[in-house]
Simulated assay, not measured.
Amino acid sequence: MKKLLLVFSVCCTGYLCGCTSHREAVEALPPLQPVAFDSVPSVDGLLSVTRLFVTGDLLVAYEETRDTLFSFWQLPDCRYLFRAGIRGNGPDDLLTLDRTFRETEEGFTAFELETSRMKEVAVDKAGHSLRIVSTKPFDGGAGFLNRFIFLKDGHYCCVSNDEKHEYLLLDNQGGVRPFGTYPEDLLPKKEGDLNRFVYNKLTVAAPSGEKFAAFYAYVKLCRMYDSEGRLLKETLLEQPRVADNGERQVYYASYPCATDEAIYVLTEVDGKPVLEVWDWDGKLTARYSLPCAFTALAYAPHDGVLYAVCAGEEKDLLYKLLL
């Protein structure tokens, strides 16, 4: 195991913060800090990790393009265990899943996109297998559900297809309520452009389900909501940039991960990969320079380590970020 330390120059600029009615300059960005990390071979030969997550003492990599969907490592030593989870329509098989996984005592719960069903999965470490414990369909006229996240009190949230509202709030009884207005005039729109694509975003909920955050792909904007769909805070770090050829600058492209205290999200500064840390009050609290362009993150609460994987030549390594 090799330990490295990277140091980049400090960079400070102003950022804007707003609520539902206005935005104003409030303070300087946190300085870029060095990050220490360990790297270990992944053993499993990761191809394209869709999502990393932790359940119990297991680190799990979900690769939606593979026929066997999950790889498992034992924590905290990050020892590779096995692959499991067959793609298919059998009783213990899974189709393509959304990128949110909720920890359970036996394993995890996931949302199956093609069928709009929530599946609870038990992980059998001894048998190197998965078992479907329960299946719950979602209907309520919501149609195709995307960016599915778990909130408290049996509430769930997903991105809406409605041009007037950003989200749908779903409950255990099949109730569906639209909420959330799109940002106004932040990004140019051509005739026929749909709001949900112009204001594409990545969402993440606190493990408690009390709040969730949205990070926008084409504008450096973070919005915080509570579990009832009320907008709590809106923070705009910089005005969006559009290239001469009309291509939008991409700010957030990889799914965040979260604890009940912090949110970890990947971005870049001047073409260099950066990790941002936010609190649930909508404040950017820290920024770290990274050794490569990570594509997925997972936080392990029992050892306080942030696990990550890179694309490209470093795809056969697992990283442990020591913040």
Rank of each mutant, 00 (worst) to 15 (best):
Y307D: 03
G180R: 01
E64L: 08
F294Q: 08
R99A: 07
T203Q: 13
C78E: 12
C222F: 01
A25Y: 05
R287W: 03
I149T: 08
F144N: 14
V159C: 14
D171V: 06
V40E: 04
I149W: 02
S42M: 02
V250N: 07
G282T: 00
K189D: 00
K220L: 08
H302W: 08
L16R: 13
S227G: 13
N245M: 07
R177P: 00
S48W: 11
R223G: 04
E106V: 10
T50F: 05
K320A: 14
M1A: 10
P76K: 05
P41H: 12
T135M: 04
F101C: 02
A61Y: 07
F8C: 08
T235H: 03
D193L: 11
G143V: 04
D77S: 12
F72G: 00
D316G: 10
H302S: 14
D193T: 03
R102V: 09
D279H: 10
E228F: 03
E228G: 14
R66K: 14
A262Y: 14
A262F: 14
K190V: 00
V309Y: 07
L29T: 15
Y218K: 12
F111M: 11
E276C: 05
R117Q: 12
A298I: 04
S71L: 00
W278N: 04
S39E: 15
R102I: 04
Y255H: 14
G141Q: 09
C157K: 12
D316C: 05
T235I: 01
P273Q: 10
G246W: 03
G229A: 11
K2P: 12
P291T: 02
T109C: 14
R66L: 14
N172F: 00
A296G: 09
F37A: 05
K201A: 07
G282Y: 05
D303C: 14
T104F: 05
L318N: 02
A205P: 03
Y319Q: 06
L275V: 06
S116E: 10
M1C: 05
E210T: 08
T181N: 10
L95Q: 15
G174S: 09
Y15A: 02
P183W: 07
D171M: 06
W73Q: 09
D44V: 08
K3W: 02
